[in-house]
Design a protein around this nucleic acid. Structure first.
Lengths: 194, 194
DNA sequence: CTCGTTCGGGAGCGATCGCTCCCGAACGAG
DNA sequence: CTCGTTCGGGAGCGATCGCTCCCGAACGAG
C-alpha cells in the first residue's frame, strides 16, 4: 500500500559507499550524499535514519561486495607463487589496477579515521579483516598441501604476515604510491618468503 | 618592541599535534584547538594563519619528534634479530607500549584520511616515510655486514618489506588490536625472515 | 471511485563551522 | 614619561552542518 519509492535502496547505498570511501566520514556532508544519491533530505533520512547509520550500511555493503570479492579471489587462486602474487596484488591495489584510483581500501581508511572507539564501526572493520585473513589462510593451506611452500610452514603465521603487508600496501596506495611500485614491492616480498 | 606573547609557540604546536593525531583533521574544530592550546581565536589565527597551515605545522613537528625518534631507534639498535624486533615493536606500537593509546601513527592516520590529493600534505607524509625507511636501511645494512642476515640479502628489498609491515602494524594499532597481539605478530614476522 | 499511507520536494530549523574584527591592555623603544 | 605595536579577550560574522517539518502528489487497497 501507499506510494512506492522512486529509487532503488541498494543503488543508493552503493553510491553512498563511493562517497564515504573517497572522502571519509567527517569530510562527507549530508548534502554531498543527497547529491550523489539523487535524494532529497526527507527521502534520505526517512530511508536511512541518519548519517552514521547510513555509514554503517555502506560498511556492510562494502564487506558484501569488495571484501567478499577479495576473499573469493584468494579462494579461487591457483596454489602457486604466481597465483598468490596476482591475488595479493588484486586485493591490495583494487580490482582494476589501471584506474588512477586514490581511494585505497574503504575499511583501511575507516579504521584509520575512526580508530577503535566506535564499537559498531570497529566490529565491521574487524569482520572485513577476518574475510581477508580467511581467504589468505585458505590459499596458503592449499599451497602447503600441494608442496608449493614447505610442510613445516605455519599457514597461520604466514596469513598474519601477508595480512599485515596487505594493510600496508593498501595504505601506500591511498597515500599515492604508484601502482607499479606497489606491484614490484609485492613481487619482492613474496619472493623473499618463497 | 610591542607586547610579547603570553604563550610558547612550540608548546602550542605540540598540543595541536596531539589533538590532530587523535581526532584527525576534519573532526578537529578550531574551537577544539583553541581549548587545547589555551588560545583565543585571535591569537590562534594571528600566530598560525588558518587551520590547514597549523595542521601542516603539526605534521612538521611530528616528523621532527616522533618520526626522527623512530629513525634514531633503528640507527641505535643492536644489529641483531632481537635488536631489530625491539626497534620495530617500539616504532610500530609507539614509544610507550603500555599506555592504551589508540592514536596509532599520526602520519598513517593522515595519509589514510587525506589521501594523496593535497600536495603539501602528501609531501610531508612521504618525508616521514623516508625517515622510517632510512633508519631501517641503516640497521639492516649493519646486520648484513655483521653476518646476522645472509650476505646475498638485499637490504633495500628487506627495508621495503619491513616498512610496509610497519604501516600495517600501525594501522592495526589504530584499529584497536591489542599491543600483545601486534608484538607477537612482529616476532613471528621477523622470525620468518630470519 | 474513496481513503489511508508513503512518497518527492523544498523551506528552513538550531547548532556549529572556520574565521574576522574591534577593543583596551601590556609591553619595548626612545 | 610618550608613542607605536602587538597582545589577550570576546563578540559575532556569513557559511555550512545534520536534520526536521510541512506540503501536495502519487500510489495501493478496498
Amino acid at each position: 500500500m501507499a506510494r512506492p519509492r522512486g529509487f532503488d535502496e541498494e543503488t543508493a547505498v552503493h553510491r553512498a559507499t563511493d562517497v564515504f570511501w573517497r572522502k571519509g566520514f567527517h569530510a562527507t556532508s549530508t548534502r554531498d550524499l543527497g547529491e550523489a544519491l539523487e535524494l532529497n533530505p526527507s527521502s534520505l533520512y526517512r530511508t536511512f535514519g541518519d548519517k552514521r547509520r547510513l555509514f554503517l550500511r555502506t560498511l556492510d555493503h562494502y564487506r558484501a561486495t569488495e571484501s567478499s570479492d577479495g576473499c573469493q579471489r584468494f579462494r579461487n587462486a591457483n596454489p602457486t607463487m604466481d597465483g598468490l602474487t596476482d591475488a595479493v596484488a588484486a586485493v591490495a591495489l583494487g580490482s582494476d589496477a589501471q584506474a588512477p584510483d586514490p581511494a585505497g581500501c574503504f575499511v583501511v581508511n575507516t579504521a584509520a579515521e575512526m580508530g577503535g572507539t566506535d564499537p559498531d564501526i570497529a566490529r565491521r572493520t574487524e569482520t572485513a579483516f577476518d574475510l581477508t585473513r580467511a581467504g589468505l589462510a585458505d590459499l596458503l593451506t592449499r599451497m602447503r598441501d600441494s608442496g608449493e611452500i614447505p610442510v613445516e610452514a605455519d599457514p597461520h603465521k604466514l596469513t598474519d604476515l601477508l595480512f599485515t603487508l596487505i594493510l600496508g600496501w593498501r595504505l601506500r596506495a591511498r597515500a599515492g604510491h604508484a601502482p607499479r611500485d606497489i606491484r614490484s614491492s609485492i613481487e619482492h616480498a613474496i619472493g623473499l618468503l618463497g
